[in-house]
């Protein structure tokens, strides 16, 4: 019986020691991919778009700024996002495919969406490199490098 009581208290200690420390600020998942632009033969490496359109949504805010990088919002309900970039002289398009996985990052944190297997099904830039195929701010701060 004494040993059983020891076993009982051992169990309670075990449960207590298994409590995890949760830090929601470490949540690395976001709802957008990141693209940077590399303008060939341009020392300042910036580009000004007249507008950027996300199909099914409309114009993205801040699309008329001069840019060296851009956040690409990814709709949760789809598995493809198509962006059109208008300049005063040309139109570029970029179609991104991805997979979506909802998850609870930690018990006391908000639920998050993990976007992974990022790929392009079409683009009309000079070239494009997929640097990181997952939206994960710890591992891959940039997803696409776009060359113009």
């Amino acid at each position: 019986m004494r040993f059983w009581l020891f076993f009982l208290s051992f169990g309670f200690c075990l449960f207590e020691s298994c409590n995890e420390i949760e830090d929601c600020t470490l949540d690395p998942y976001g709802n957008y991919a990141v693209a940077t632009f590399d303008v060939l033969n341009d020392e300042v490496q910036i580009i000004a778009f007249d507008s950027i359109i996300l199909e099914g949504f409309g114009r993205l805010p801040g699309d008329q700024d001069t840019l060296i990088g851009l956040l690409l919002p990814l709709p949760v309900e789809n598995t493809e996002a198509v962006f059109h970039y208008y300049t005063d002289s040309s139109l570029y398009s970029l179609a991104i495919t991805y997979k979506v996985q909802p998850l609870i990052y930690a018990l006391s944190c908000e639920a998050a969406i993990r976007f992974y297997d990022l790929d392009t099904s079409y683009h009309s830039f000079d070239s494009l490199v997929i640097v990181g195929s997952e939206v994960h701010f710890d591992y891959v701060p940039i997803n696409f490098e776009i060359y113009l």
Partner: peptide, 18 residues
């Protein structure tokens, strides 16, 4: 089943259910 509200600066607040 998981239900939550996703706050998104582009698409607004969406209620998602999986």
């Amino acid at each position: 089943q998981l239900t939550f509200a996703e706050e998104n600066p582009w698409f607004g607040t969406q209620t998602l259910q999986f």
